[in-house]
Computed example of a mutant assay.
Amino acid sequence: MRHQNNLDLQLWLREAKFLQKAAQSDSLAQSLPVLRRLLESKIFTDITLPELKRHSASIQRKHLLHMLAAENGWSCWADFKKIVSAAPKGTLLPYSTERLDAGYLVQWFSSVSEAQRYTEQHSGKVVKVGSQAAVVPEQ
């Protein structure tokens, strides 16, 4: 059962790689959202956003994996990796997988509960992204 979710685990690793490239990008539009998530997840402390941007080349893949774990309620990547491996295939996927399936803009909310209230009236699928949430329209 552990190896059946290897594909799911690979999606999380690919997400971390994508986020690392975005964090290190010269484009502020690409880098700032990731850098803010790193700070919000307390991966880096005692550093300001402008300082983190200046030192973004030092951001490693392990930092992004730890951030993804923290955003999903786990204290470290090793623990989260075990959860992903044990989860039923396809049930615990990174946000980018959902975003690619959507094919168009999604609605953003500052909390999961706000997103859930929205779906009660308008339908859609709630996708947790850190402390925020997105609603992907049902297809």
Rank of each mutant, 00 (worst) to 15 (best):
Q60T: 10
S123F: 07
V136D: 00
H63G: 01
K89Y: 05
H63S: 08
G130K: 06
P88R: 13
V34D: 03
K21R: 14
L35W: 06
Y104G: 03
L38H: 04
Q24R: 15
I43L: 09
A134P: 00
S110D: 14
A23I: 10
G73Q: 09
A29Y: 07
Q116G: 00
L11Q: 13
F109Y: 13
S110C: 05
A133H: 06
A102Y: 00
L105F: 08
H122V: 10
R36S: 05
L52H: 08
K62Y: 01
L52R: 05
S123Y: 04
L11E: 06
S58H: 09
H66Q: 15
R61F: 03
K42N: 14
D46K: 14
K82V: 10
A134D: 02
P50W: 08
V129A: 11
Q116S: 11
K53C: 04
H3E: 11
E40C: 03
S96T: 10
Q107W: 08
I43E: 05
R54F: 12
E138S: 10
A69K: 05
R2T: 13
A69S: 06
A87L: 06
H3M: 05
T119P: 00
K21H: 12
Y104W: 01
S41D: 06
D101F: 08
T91D: 06
E71M: 10
Q10T: 11
S31E: 10
S27T: 01
A57T: 13
D26V: 10
V106S: 03
T45W: 01
H63K: 04
H63M: 03
Q121C: 03
A86D: 13
K89E: 08
L93N: 03
R117C: 09
M1C: 02
A29I: 12
E114H: 09
Q4T: 13
S41H: 01
S113Y: 10
E98C: 06
L35A: 06
S41Q: 11
K125H: 13
E98H: 13
K89S: 10
Q30G: 00
L68C: 05
D8A: 06
N5T: 15
L68Q: 12
L52S: 07
P88K: 14
R14E: 15
S58Y: 06
S41W: 00
Q30M: 10
T48I: 02
V129R: 12
P33I: 04
Y95T: 11
W74Y: 15
W74V: 00
A133P: 05
L105M: 11
D46Y: 04
K17P: 00
A102G: 00
Q132G: 05
Q116L: 13
G103D: 07
V112Y: 05
K128Q: 15
S27P: 02
I83K: 12
W74R: 07
L49V: 02
L93I: 10
V34P: 01
Q121F: 10
L93M: 12
E71S: 05
F44R: 05
L100Y: 11
W108R: 08
L7K: 02
T97H: 09
I43S: 01
